[in-house]
């Protein structure tokens, strides 16, 4: 968390980039409080509500549950409850959301 807090200084807006960055911001805001599935570099998957992110793609999930990698036979499928969890951006491998949550979020998924 330290990095996010330290960098939470006064944000400086660069006038020329306002349009593209505001679009991106809109896209991300549309995802807030949606279910999100994040795969981490060590193979674990976290599922939880998307609550917060920043420029380095650090993501905070609420009510997060941890699923082990599928090769693990022990307690496979049985999630462990983590609660509020922050995944550092450099450990994020993939991000998924549920299809129906994209319906009201334009610009995501549509291109793919």
């Amino acid at each position: 968390m330290a990095t996010m807090i330290e960098e939470n200084g006064p944000s400086t807006h660069v006038q020329s980039e306002v349009s593209s960055s505001s679009h991106a911001r809109q896209k991300l805001e549309g995802l807030l409080n949606k279910n999100m599935r994040i795969r981490m570099t060590d193979g674990r998957t976290l599922v939880g509500l998307f609550l917060c992110t920043d420029r380095d793609c650090n993501v905070i999930l609420g009510s997060a549950q941890e699923f082990l990698k599928s090769t693990d036979t022990f307690s496979q499928g049985e999630p462990r409850v983590l609660g509020l969890a922050m995944i550092p951006g450099h450990h994020v491998v993939s991000i998924e959301v549920e299809a129906d949550s994209l319906e009201d979020t334009q610009g995501f998924g549509a291109t793919h």
Binding site: L28, D54, C57, I95
Partner: peptide, 20 residues
Amino acid sequence: VDITHEFKGACKELNLGELL
């Protein structure tokens, strides 16, 4: 639905230190 690429791209548009 995988949105890794778009999500990371959108994040980059955020300002340094800005929390969304």
